[in-house]
Structures are given as C-alpha cells and as structure tokens.
Design a protein around this nucleic acid. Structure first.
Lengths: 215, 215
DNA sequence: CCTACCGATCGGTAGG
DNA sequence: CCTACCGATCGGTAGG
C-alpha cells in the first residue's frame, strides 16, 4: 500500500521518493495520452501520489518538462540516423537501415513520438524553431538519400520529396497503432517497414524479384 | 475596416453577421493549429471579431463543435471509400482507388484530418467510442481488401494488417506536410500515393514494370 | 515533501 | 449581438 504507483521508488525506512526521472516518466505517459494542454500538473502529481507543488522539487516548469522531452527525442533521432547509415555504401542498404532504425524507435518509444508529433506547437520560441530545424534536417537527409538513389538509377520515384515523406510518416504512425503485446515484435515491424521503403522507391527485393532484375 | 476577417459575412447596411458555418470554420483552423485543449473560445471569438458569449448563438458548446467536426469527417471518409471502390472489381484497382480517395481527402481537408488524429481523445463517451468504431471500420475495410489480394495471389505482403496501416498512415500524414500552394497538386499527390500503395503490396505497375508488365 | 494561497484564465450563464 | 459575472481550475509561489 505504501508504493501505490510504479513511479515511486521504495526507500529504506518504508518511505517513497519521487525523482526527476519519475516525474518525466509520468509526464511522458500523460502527455502522450491526453496531450500537453490536456494534461494538468495535478494529474501528473496524482499519478506520483504527491501534491502538485511538490513537483517543483523535480522540475522547473510544465513547459520545461515538454521541452526536455522534445529536445532529447529529436537529438536521438538524428544520432540514430547517423549511426545507422555510417559506413553503409549501397544506397538501397542505407535507405533500408535508416528506415529500420526510424521505425524501430517509433515502435519502442511511442509516447515520445506521439508528443513530438502532436505537441511541438505548444513549446515557446526559440526552442520550437530549434526542434523544427532538427526534424527538417532528418527529413532532408532522407530526401537526399532517395535523390541519390534516383540519380544513380537504383531508385525509381517521380518525386523524392513525396517518397521521403511517405516513408518517414508511415514509420511515425507506428507509434500510434503498434501494440508491443501483440503478435508481431517491434523488430519485425521495423524490418517490414524497411522493406516497404525499398518497394516505395521501386527497388526490387529478393521477395518480389523479377527474372531480369532492375534496369 | 468593417470586415476585418474573411469569416464575417457582409450584410446590407454595413453590418456583419456570424453564422454557425463561420464559427465552425474558425474552430477548424484554430483546433488544427493549437489543438482542442490549446484553443480557447476567446480565440475563436477574436478570429470572428465578436465577444466570447456571442459564440453561443451559433453553437451549443465547445465540446459540441469538436464532436460535429469529428463525426462529419469520419462519416465522409467511410462514404468516400464506398464510392471509390463501388463497381471496381480488380483488387489492385480497388486498392489504388481507395488509397487515391483517402489521400486526396487529406490533401484537401488537412484541418479536419489533423483534428481527428490529434483530438479524438478529447471527446466524451459515448461519442468517442462511435468515432473510433468508424475509424476502425475503415481500417478493417483496407485490411480485408489487402487480404483478398494476397489470397488471390495478386498481392505479396507478409502481414496484411501492417501493410494496411502503412498505407493508411502515409496518406493521413499528407495533411501535416502537404502545401496546396506548392509545386505538386493535391490530385498528383493522391495519384502518387495510390502508386505507393500498389508498390507496398508488391504489385508491379506500369511505371516499374518487368519485361512482361502492362503497357 | 507539505499546506495555504496567488492572479489569470477557462467554459459557460443571466439578462437584456 | 452585448456587458456583467459565475464557479472551477489552471500553473506556480511562499514559507516552512
């Protein structure tokens, strides 16, 4: 009965303590569920079984909580992209790896993804502009990757920008429908999306190869 | 200076009048921009150049405004799907037509789409359950369509549910990035997404046909 | 970590 | 369509 919520860390002496991490964890869940403006600090406090003013021992403000989530998430997305394509030369493999990584992140971190995509408009300038710039950078990297594949004749799409958005956004949406307790694993979902990406850009995979391959 | 906003309809005598349609139009824009919880009725009133209480001459409540938008939109999506596939027998053509229609809606009605996808959690029961049921119906229709294509050997995907989500959600996202004043028309975007859908399910199109492909 | 409390703003009503 | 006004709740502070 002492530890009513998993966010509370039991401490010697039977008392429980709330940490900045626990506050952020509760905020992630509630912001993702009801949105930033739809979540009251009193609800976060209730989830942690403390009073609202006590939250200020672990955070600067509600806005700061959101900013930290958005900045961390966008930073990680860019870092994971770089790590995924690092050293990979084949443009098809680069697209496949970048898509796999992006899809996997959305399957394993759905709350962060939902918040970034819904509540980025709720943060104040100049942070908002910085977050948008990072998201644009990621989309541009994808677009340029596809454009390279088109120019080298490996990919076949009418418009690299449209194809990039289609691929990116089908990955983003995983955060909204994927069930980690369902029959398909996060890795399997990510793999299939890597395959979808190749199909969208017109790369013949082993699965659906023609007899004479691509021209 | 008498007509400060496009939502105001000029009336004989130099006076302006606000209508239920104008209120809804302003709500569509603001809800899409800042979210339902992030929009105050005072902001909607300001956009219409009236005082907040005057809004109640044209609507029942803020919640009612959202409910009307969500119900109308989900109803239209289902009706458009039925109309798109009606009489079309070939399973590839059915998928292409259903995707084209869904994509076109999101390119031409981005505000409605953004609100449905972000603020459906903000409506009270039992309406919320009804809206979710309609969205599920549409997704199920898509999934069954793809499943039929797989069973008949026309489509080649590992998991019809995953493919259905990927196709649907890349269309939904159009509402978030498409610029109607950009170089590509809504119809062209929709056409390309119809093509992407066929590629995702492994159908060889005219564009990327093998030697034995169609014209 | 708490109680007590703040000004601001929210959606909505009364009454014309 | 307006002014005047309501109770509720918001994020946040004071002070221990």
């Amino acid at each position: 009965m002492a530890a009513k919520s998993p966010q509370r860390q039991p401490v010697v002496g039977g008392r429980a303590a709330v940490s900045p991490t626990a506050v952020r964890e509760a905020a992630l869940t509630l912001f993702a569920e009801r949105g930033y403006h739809g979540t009251a600090l009193s609800q976060i406090a209730k989830a942690l079984d403390i009073q609202t003013p006590s939250l200020y021992n672990h955070m600067a403000s509600k806005q700061d909580l959101l900013v930290a989530i958005l900045q961390d998430t966008t930073d990680r997305v860019l870092a994971e992209y770089d790590a995924a394509v690092d050293g990979v030369e084949d443009v098809g493999e680069r697209l496949s790896a970048a898509t796999y990584t992006y899809a996997l992140r959305h399957a394993t971190h759905p709350r962060e993804a939902v918040i970034v995509n819904r509540d980025a408009t709720a943060i104040d300038e100049p942070v908002r502009a910085a977050v948008y710039a990072k998201r644009r950078k990621h989309a541009d990297d994808f677009r340029e990757l596809i454009q390279k594949g088109v120019e080298s004749g490996r990919f076949d799409v009418e418009n690299a920008t449209v194809a990039a958005f289609a691929i990116l956004e089908m990955c983003v949406s995983i955060a909204r429908w994927f069930d980690p307790d369902g029959p398909v694993s996060a890795e399997e979902i990510a793999r299939q999306h890597g395959e979808f990406a190749l199909r969208i850009v017109g790369v013949r995979s082993a699965l659906s190869a023609c007899s004479d391959g691509a021209s």
